[in-house]
Amino acid sequence: MSKYLLNKFLYTVDRDPELVERYREDPVDTVTWWEQEKANEILNCAVAEKSTWLAFTDDERKALREQDHVALFGLGAHPFLTLTLFIAMFERDHDPLEYQKAYGRVLRQHYALPYPEIAT
Rank of each mutant, 00 (worst) to 15 (best):
82 T>K: 01
7 N>T: 04
29 D>Y: 01
41 E>T: 06
91 E>D: 15
76 G>L: 10
4 Y>P: 03
15 R>Y: 13
66 E>V: 03
95 D>Y: 12
44 N>I: 00
98 E>M: 10
63 A>G: 12
50 K>R: 12
31 V>E: 01
44 N>G: 07
102 A>P: 04
115 Y>R: 02
61 R>S: 10
42 I>N: 05
43 L>N: 07
120 T>Q: 08
71 A>W: 05
52 T>M: 05
59 D>Y: 08
96 P>F: 09
10 L>Y: 02
52 T>F: 15
109 Q>T: 06
49 E>N: 11
92 R>Q: 15
90 F>G: 04
46 A>R: 04
75 L>R: 02
117 E>R: 13
42 I>D: 11
83 L>A: 13
82 T>P: 02
58 D>M: 11
104 G>S: 13
13 V>T: 05
25 E>S: 10
112 A>Y: 05
53 W>K: 10
101 K>T: 06
85 L>A: 05
78 H>S: 03
51 S>E: 06
36 Q>L: 08
11 Y>V: 01
66 E>A: 13
92 R>K: 15
114 P>D: 12
89 M>E: 12
50 K>T: 10
24 R>W: 02
40 N>E: 10
115 Y>L: 05
59 D>K: 15
48 A>L: 05
65 R>Q: 14
54 L>E: 07
21 E>M: 12
12 T>P: 00
103 Y>D: 06
101 K>P: 01
26 D>F: 09
7 N>Q: 14
34 W>S: 00
95 D>Q: 15
49 E>V: 11
89 M>T: 06
14 D>C: 12
84 T>R: 15
108 R>C: 14
112 A>K: 12
62 K>Y: 11
66 E>P: 04
51 S>L: 11
85 L>C: 04
48 A>T: 07
23 Y>S: 01
16 D>Y: 02
26 D>T: 11
76 G>H: 10
92 R>H: 14
57 T>W: 09
84 T>H: 15
22 R>V: 00
64 L>W: 00
98 E>Q: 15
120 T>M: 11
67 Q>W: 05
2 S>H: 09
13 V>Q: 02
77 A>G: 07
100 Q>V: 10
85 L>E: 03
110 H>D: 05
28 V>L: 04
117 E>W: 06
73 F>Y: 15
67 Q>A: 06
21 E>F: 03
112 A>E: 11
61 R>M: 07
31 V>G: 00
